[in-house]
Design a protein around this nucleic acid. Sequence first.
DNA 1: GGGGGAAGGACCA
DNA 2: TTCCTGGTCCTTCCCCC
Length: 710
Amino acid sequence: MGDAGPGSAAGPAEDGLLSRMALNDNKAGMEGLDREKINKIILEASKGSRFYENELKKERQVNQRVEKMLQQKGRVAEEHLRTAQVQVDKMISELERSRELSRVIVHVDMDAFYAAVEMRDRPELKDQPMAVGSMSMLSTSNYHARRFGVRAAMPGFIAKKLCPNLVIVPLNFDKYKAVSSQVREVFSDYDQNFLPMSLDEAYLDITAHLEMRRNWPECQRSYRLPEAGEKEESLSPVLFDESPGTTSSFQDPPGRVEVFGTTAEEAVREMRFRIEHKTSLTASAGIAPNMMLAKVCSDKNKPNGQYRIPPERREVMDFILDLPVRKVPGIGKVTEKMLAALGINCCSQLGQKMALLSLLFSETSWHHFLQISLGLGSTHIVRNSERKSMSTERTFGEMSVAEEQLTLCKELCEDLAQELLKEGLKGKTVTLKVKNVKFEVKTRALTLPYSVSSANEIYTSARDLLRAELDHVSPEPLRLRLMGVRVSGFASVDEKRPQQRSIMGFLQLQQAELAGGGAKDFTSLHTDSVLTHSPPCTSAPVSLMPHPLTCPVCFKDMETSDLTAFNMHIDECLKCSAAQKGDEGSLSGSRVLETVTAGELQPAGEKDKPGDVSVTSGVCGHTPLVCPVCGQMQETADLTTFNHHVDECLNHNVLLELRETGIQTVHEGTVSTHTLTWFPNTQDTRSSPPPPSKKAKAAAPKNTIDRFFR
DNA sequence: GGGGGAAGGACCA
DNA sequence: TTCCTGGTCCTTCCCCC
């Protein structure tokens, strides 16, 4: 290796390289490390490799961007700045007017998640530096390892050079998923609509929970620590010597009762307490009026701690004042470098130079910066946002034989097709991604005039793209180290939305509404594996089960609240209905109504939910016809008129959630015991396919492969 | 000039 | 000896209408 280590007389590119490759200690547990020593080891381990060469190249590109930006800055006149400042000020006052501080948003992040799970399961690892991953790449490391500079996204072989005693444990996703679902059970008690960001991280809006919590008796906020012998795993992993946050609750004496208060801090402390007792793992949390701040806060007292920004403008601005821009989600190493070149390192400087930024950056970018400088962020957690693409990729040792590459491409398409099938997705754009042995990444895409999802269809496009790439380098071989296939351009919600929504979605949402949004069910508290409420609540349990249960087929109120019995009744009713109907000619277009499960019921006639609707009408062939929405008997026997009434009723009275799973087309003559007949409203034009877009008409003939590789 | 596809890149966990 | 995977969003370039 060369002798141009950090601090030596390296050229500008090499100095710059350090910012890309050097230790990123912007992570909990990595403060006060000997950066120079660590960087020297990293550099020596990397230098001369193809990866290093490619990083050097990328660094030069970033440096050029910075150069260009500084040249632009040199051309900015005072007059331009004054005009820009007027625009910025106007925007600030608009943003200030819309500032929302009433939501209580929480970001929860499990501490060193994968590593913590492995340490929990293998106590001998607790006192050693360890990381999860492989010699190629580490996913995370424990806090002992972080002291050596070992961190996530670092190749294992370099980590070993930093810390020769490092134990590398392979990834075990099934295990992490299982733990994650335990954690999510706890989350859902505070916000049923929490937004998971990954296995170990989620956003919650606990505003509604706090409102209810204010009136809860103490018993509902109390947890008794298990007696000796009650616990399976008695100790939490020793992850942290000096946690800035709370001490481990496992140190508390068994049998003691922990009572939590009604404030946001107390609710979050309780949540973390329950997570720890359920999983033996600790979590950190941030509480703030918006998602951006909550995310930054959760890192503040990591590990095993929490931090809250009170919902006041002054508090928010104080917090933002010295916050390094790199701590803000969305600002990575490149943006950090660009801003640093302008003398901007913390968020308050961002605000001071906003006029300049508005002249040098795109509108999207500077608007984002402006929001950050004001401590603004999203106050509403949007779940179920539509997936935009799906892909699969594989890294391997050098592969240069075309036949092997085509075979691999086919395998990738098959894998991808299976995943698409699981989610019922079809897309128009197929993208091939290749990374050559020099770490150069290329993507080649082809947009078709129709949507594809099968392995063969995807492969047809991917193969053409790969062949074009092979031709492009011919007669040299294509030397690859990664290949991936992606499908995107899925039909939008409007296009793929079934004509009518599932009645199950209808029931589910009504149930959620009934529960008060994020309501805490007494019984759910007892599902925690270790904790129990103590003293036991004596007040009557809040039942979330709507009464009476009404059969959606015969519309009779049931005397039972037992779901199995209720489902059996529906099955019988459906059989009877199918037998009575005889003529199944009108069945095409029917929908399947799955057996009802807990949490999907609604009381008959519950209807005063405003909003947009289009719902599968659960109507059987019985007469008289009874509207399942308003519960009223209809005078007509004409199904079109009846369906029209149901549609009208739904359109005006209910708010629904689309729930597509479980909706299937029932083919003629295949009425199962779980099938409700639905008579499609022939007047309804909502299912008409959208007119072909201009691009669809234009795309096909133009997007020839040749165009990509001139 | 606007819309949209392609390609590449930043960023995230 | 060895530097991931899967996703979203943004920017830039280019073509076509």
